[in-house]
Simulated scan of single mutants.
Amino acid sequence: MGRAVTQPTPRQADLLPAARRTRNQYWLSSAGFVAPAVLLVAVVLYLPFIWTTWISFTEYNGLGDPAWVGLANYREMFADPEFLTSIRNTLFWVVGTIALPVGLGLLIATLSHGMPNATLFRLPFLIPYAVSGVAVGVIWSFVLQTNGALSQALEVLGLPGSELRWLLDDPLNTFVMIGAATWQGAGVNALLFGIGLQSIPKEPIEAARVDGASGFTLFRTMTWPMLAPLTTVVVGLAIVGSLKTFDVIWGMTKGGPGRVSETLALTMFKETFVNNAYGLGAAVALFLTVVTVLASVLYLRRQLADSRSI
């Protein structure tokens, strides 16, 4: 037997067009709210990106019309040994920024968690974050310059290292600049991890203590897994920030001596605004953008995949 087809009643038939009109009005209203934000993103982000991509395939000095050169800027970029040094230094910054500011921030937050007046303990580490990156570079360049404050202090104390040229020798200058960035950024990471520790439920921690877990074992088996979502955000921000590092380096060495301490961000700036090679600078900018996006996407996909498997 065939199934009987239920026809809408006259009342239901009258309501269908009204429901469609209501749904269409809802979508139109939603689009009206979203459109300004989409337009702003397109104007501020996408149009400059398209223009930069176009300029990267041209020879352009900021005056006149760009001349199409195809992949010449990219070939010149990868053939330049100084560019390869910039890539190496950028990798140093990525690894150093994850290991030091993030690691030190986690250590400060863990040690101060549960202490009375823990905020006062973290405050001295947080104050440098209020200082601009260029100011941090100026402060630390005074400390680390040849025969500067650090060298003189080591010499007076009879400790080794007073003869080192902190900002002149490669890759030592990159490492000490990562240390300066750590001084600035560890406090805010400690603040974020402190907030994460406060949000962890106490019951599982107390149950683990009853079972005999304590110290590093308690942290590794209970606290650290519960901090994983926050750690993903903090490390992701650190990766993106390290790839774009500019201000601290500019304030301390300006990429020198020569170009031995440049990163990709500094190379992009110098090629564009110092050498007036806008096409080559745009090629470096596009390469840096692709690297930043790929690093962020791969890291987040890895972290999200790990979180689903738990």
Rank of each mutant, 00 (worst) to 15 (best):
W93R: 09
A283I: 01
M115Q: 14
P160V: 07
N276Q: 15
L107C: 07
L107I: 10
S162G: 11
R88K: 08
N61Q: 12
Y26V: 11
V293G: 02
S242A: 15
Q303F: 00
S141G: 03
S199W: 04
S296E: 08
R75E: 12
P229T: 01
V233L: 09
R165L: 11
A18K: 15
F175Y: 07
G158A: 07
L300S: 07
T85V: 11
I239V: 15
A238Q: 09
T253K: 02
L227S: 09
F287L: 06
I139V: 14
L71S: 14
G148W: 02
P124I: 09
S214G: 07
A99G: 00
I55A: 05
R308M: 06
G2Q: 10
L106T: 08
M252S: 13
V43R: 08
L40I: 15
F246N: 03
A282V: 01
R3G: 10
G212R: 02
L123H: 06
L39Q: 14
M252H: 04
A67I: 06
T217F: 03
T85I: 09
L71C: 05
A295I: 06
P10A: 08
V260E: 13
A31T: 11
A19T: 01
Q7M: 12
V260Y: 10
L197Y: 00
T97F: 10
L280Q: 14
L264Y: 02
K202S: 11
N24R: 14
I108H: 05
T6H: 12
A207Y: 05
W27A: 13
G70F: 02
T9K: 08
A285D: 01
G114W: 09
T119S: 13
F121W: 10
L294V: 11
T110P: 03
D169F: 07
S112E: 05
A180L: 11
L91C: 10
G281T: 05
N173K: 02
W224P: 04
V69N: 03
T292N: 05
G62K: 09
L237E: 04
Y46H: 02
V44A: 14
Q198A: 12
